[in-house]
């Protein structure tokens, strides 16, 4: 695409990297949290529920700032990571973490809704057929919530493509390193004469989101047909 700058291509690549990594890393955890929320009766369950949903209602900038405190040099996790020479702030990892935290509630919500609609009798039937709790989870519960997991992943992927507030605070806006599509657009709008370039990235963004929607729709239909 001739109307895109090389830095724009970087932004597109980075957006994809961040969205893919955030989705892939969060999915197993999301399944685990959804399972705990739906099937277990542990103390502090409402606390876990509140914590996972919080990023949905908080302004992303607040989430970003809290993450910055947590992962900063003097933060709980940051100081521990420093000892192991791992840098999160102003890196791609930081962008992935920011996207993961912001998109996580959408993922958990979707999986949870899916798991809640599974008739508990299927799990009972599996148990009486000699299947243990883990076996039942992997052969009955997970396959039956497959569609919900997929929908959750799509939502999370789309949310990560558009993530701005938390990312700019935790990972900054460094072209080629942490500058994803929304951050690049933001920078163009602040640059004199950058309108045209902002607009072309906007078009890319629209196109990408539309493709994600199409893929998600097609996949969910094929899951229905099975």
């Amino acid at each position: 695409m001739p109307f895109l700058q090389p830095s724009d291509l970087d932004a597109i690549r980075l957006s994809f990297q961040v969205a893919c990594a955030a989705t892939v890393v969060s999915t197993p955890l999301g399944i685990g949290v959804a399972y705990v929320l739906v099937y277990t009766r542990i103390p502090g369950k409402s606390l876990i529920e509140g914590l996972t949903n919080l990023p949905l209602v908080l302004p992303p900038v607040v989430v970003g700032y809290l993450l910055l405190l947590l992962f900063g040099r003097r933060g709980w996790i940051g100081s521990w990571l420093m000892e192991h020479n791992i840098q999160v702030i102003f890196t791609l990892t930081g962008a992935i973490i920011a996207s993961s935290v912001v998109g996580f509630p959408l993922l958990v919500r979707s999986i949870r809704l899916g798991m809640e609609t599974i008739d508990p009798a299927y799990r009972m039937a599996a148990r009486t057929l000699g299947s243990g709790p883990w076996d039942t989870f992997f052969t009955v519960t997970l396959p039956l919530s497959g569609k919900a997991v997929f929908v959750g992943m799509t939502l999370m992927f789309a949310r990560s493509l558009g993530e701005f507030g938390a990312t700019i605070i935790l990972a900054g806006n460094i072209p080629g390193i942490t500058q994803t599509i929304p951050l690049a657009i933001y920078e163009y709008t602040g640059t004199p004469g950058g309108d045209r370039m902002a607009l072309s990235l906007c078009l890319v963004s629209i196109l990408l989101s539309y493709v994600v929607l199409l893929i998600s729709g097609a996949a969910s239909r094929s899951l229905d047909r099975r």
Binding site: A121, Y122, M124, A125, T128, V140, L144, R226
Partner: peptide, 13 residues
């Protein structure tokens, strides 16, 4: 102990 449920609960997948 085997169980045959009223609504049979065959695994739909």
């Amino acid at each position: 102990i085997g169980v045959v449920f009223q609504h049979n609960h065959l695994f739909p997948h």
